[in-house]
Nucleic acid binder design. Structure first.
Ligand SMILES: [Mn+2]
Ligand SMILES: [Mn+2]
Ligand SMILES: [Mn+2]
Ligand SMILES: [Mn+2]
Lengths: 219, 219
DNA sequence: TAATATTTTTAGGTAAGTCTAAAAATTATT
DNA sequence: AATAATTTTTAGACTTACCTAAAAATATTA
């Protein structure tokens, strides 16, 4: 039996939640991202647990098993490679590709993905700066930090984003925050943690903490 | 409500059956191609009829409505464009692409398909010689006939095939029957309708009527 | 044209994946 | 530690897309 779209989406979302915490992942967190109700998530977790993709204890949250993580990395690999294809070969903007990649990531053909990888010249990161796992599920170490954690006065380059919703990416574009831009934090306002930021030697502009958190920088 | 994979497959299959006959399409014919049981087909025909995609009378077979035909042509367009992509850009052989295109044809993004069309330089036919509908569902007239209907002694070029199963395409490759090859019928054997065929000025070889029927030739 | 064979539909079920409402477990607050 | 709030699970339903078995309609043959 092949893995279903629903199952692949759950795997991918649990993986994403696991990246930002070492705690067990809660039913509600998954429900929010899958856009399902908590009851449906419980159902699916039970099934995935039976298949050996997750370690799940009632009321105690869930973690991917090593098999589940391998499966998730494979989906992430496909998603990110397709995003590169859409931007580099099809001429989409970086804020237009996520939804289409959500569909393309479910195409089942190892041979196709390997050929696509070669066709794109083995990219290490997707249009949002996210690392692309290789065939064996190894993520390249790109070595970046959140802009919100950068020390004041040190310059770095924008290498990625921590989310790829269209509204966020469009805001970045409006703010002139493009992949590769040189960023220097001038000041952090204690009141709302908003950041005064110099972009490419232009006069400083103000961005919210929310934006800063989601911008990734390499020094 | 978006159209489901199952619905898209039914539309495509009814369309394919309609191409070769002006009769109404039978439940059993659809069942065979969808690999479902006749009872399931009846179920789906009722649903599709309610949606206005087909004209269906119990026991009398089914035809696509003009809306249904438009939807089917859109799926066929996607299928064939993806096949071109897989062969021309990804380096697959013509006998390897059908199954992958069966998946890719369900990707929903008009913008993607238009960009893909441009990226491929607006091909008029797919790797099997089948015409690719344009955005408006118009099929280009490629003007070919079945090799089985070619007169003896007249030469023509192989421009397509009437089916794209992998076994058939592999046999063609083995027989040296490639897209573009020059073909001349030397003799038709009355006993089994097998055809003695000259390919590109080589010594004649024998092919079955079954093969000849499925090879398309332009004079 | 009557009997027989074939095709198609109906009736009743199943599995996947979702939902709502209610119950149970866990966590936070007094 | 008892109570309240929150989270999670269970119970029971629904929809889609299938299935098998039996009934009904149509087509074929004698
Ligand atoms: Mn994405
Ligand atoms: Mn991305
Ligand atoms: Mn095909
Ligand atoms: Mn084809």
């Amino acid at each position: 039996m092949a893995i279903s779209f629903a199952e692949e989406n759950y795997l991918k979302i649990i993986f994403r939640l696991s990246e930002s915490t070492k705690e067990d992942i809660s039913t509600n967190a998954i429900a929010e991202l899958t856009q399902n109700k908590a009851a449906s998530v419980t159902d699916m977790l039970r099934k995935m647990s039976e298949k050996g993709w997750v370690n799940y204890q009632k009321y105690q949250g869930v973690r991917l098993s090593s098999l589940g993580e391998k499966l998730a990395l494979d989906i992430v690999r496909k998603h990110r490679l397709w995003e590169v294809f859409l931007v580099k070969k099809m001429g989409f903007n970086w804020d237009e590709v996520h939804e289409i990649a959500e569909q393309l990531e479910h195409i089942e053909s190892e041979e196709l993905i390997d050929k696509l990888d070669a066709f794109l010249d083995y990219p290490r990161s997707d249009p949002h700066g996210d690392p692309i796992p290789n065939k064996d599920g190894i993520l390249p170490q790109l070595g970046y930090v959140s802009l919100a954690n950068m020390p004041i006065g040190k310059a770095g380059n924008l290498v990625g984003v921590a989310q790829d919703s269209a509204v966020f990416l469009q805001l970045l574009t409006k703010l002139n925050l493009r992949l590769g831009a040189t960023l220097e934090i001038i000041e952090i306002n204690a009141f709302d943690l908003s950041v005064s930021l110099r972009i490419d030697n232009n006069p400083p502009v103000l961005i919210s903490h929310e934006v800063a958190k989601n911008v990734l920088v390499k020094r």
